[in-house]
Amino acid sequence: MHKEEIYTVKSPYREDMTIWGYRFGKGEPAACILGSVRGNEMQQMYICSQLVRALKELEANGCINANKRIMVIPVINGMGLNVSKRFFGVEDMDINRGFPGKVNGDTTDRIAHGIFEKIKEYTYGIQLTSFYMSGEFVPHVRMMETGYQNTSLANLFGLPYVVVRKPSPLDTKTLNYNWQNEMTAAFSVYTNKNDTIDEESARQAVAAVLRFLTRMGIIRYESHSGYISHVIMEHDLTDVHVEMGGIFKGLVKPGEDVRYGELLAEVIDPYEGFIRETITAPTDGIVFFAHTEPLVAQGDIAYRLIHRLHL
């Protein structure tokens, strides 16, 4: 393992924020894995730290294949993590909306550029990331529909689902999109948590990344074969909205099967405690995303369901 400086941001009031990369193996740039780009992505940082630990052991045992180089960057926005701020600096900028960055741009552009110049050459790019909506997902691999996406490769992670998202203009500044533009096969891996650590789904994510690296001939690692992934288009998910604001009491979790008409959640009046609204499943399906915050506003998405076609 070789620890190298990827980029350093200076501050007059705090210590420098150095972004560290951990390199394993030698030769062609095979795979790059990124963790916490935002200051609340603690689960993503944890997963990467466990990958560094696992790859260090595999390298010591000679299990990184010849002429294959792997880079793991567990933390980008360390300053944000230390003060519980999702975005970077006083400008509150999302580094993951700054790619490919600009060498002469603002601070966030320069951070993104500094990172991207070091990682754009890799054949496979894996980002452990979070969604803008807070809540829990079924673990899945997400890809942008850029024309370069390859869902067959995404299947090799062995996670239950592969989701293809049609990019909005804003998505064109994400790492995933720009990696694909540079012909890196890019994958975003989502587990069920962000700002807390869930050991079980972290283990699942570590196993999925190691499984993918094995199947691409980059490492040698014995693992079970995982799931045969179900590929879904994001716009095919069925959104279940709440019609009233209040306290949200979710009754089903990501991954659970639900039947048409089944009670999914209740919205409780925050003053008098009565049930203002009951939310039922509009279709048979599997819970893909669940709102998990205690409060909910009118029109919020409580659940996203994968519509089940065959029972």
């Binding site: 604001g245 925050p270 506003a297 009118q298």
Partner: peptide
Amino acid sequence: FSVELPVG
């Protein structure tokens, strides 16, 4: 446009 927030 109007939308109900969680608390009153």
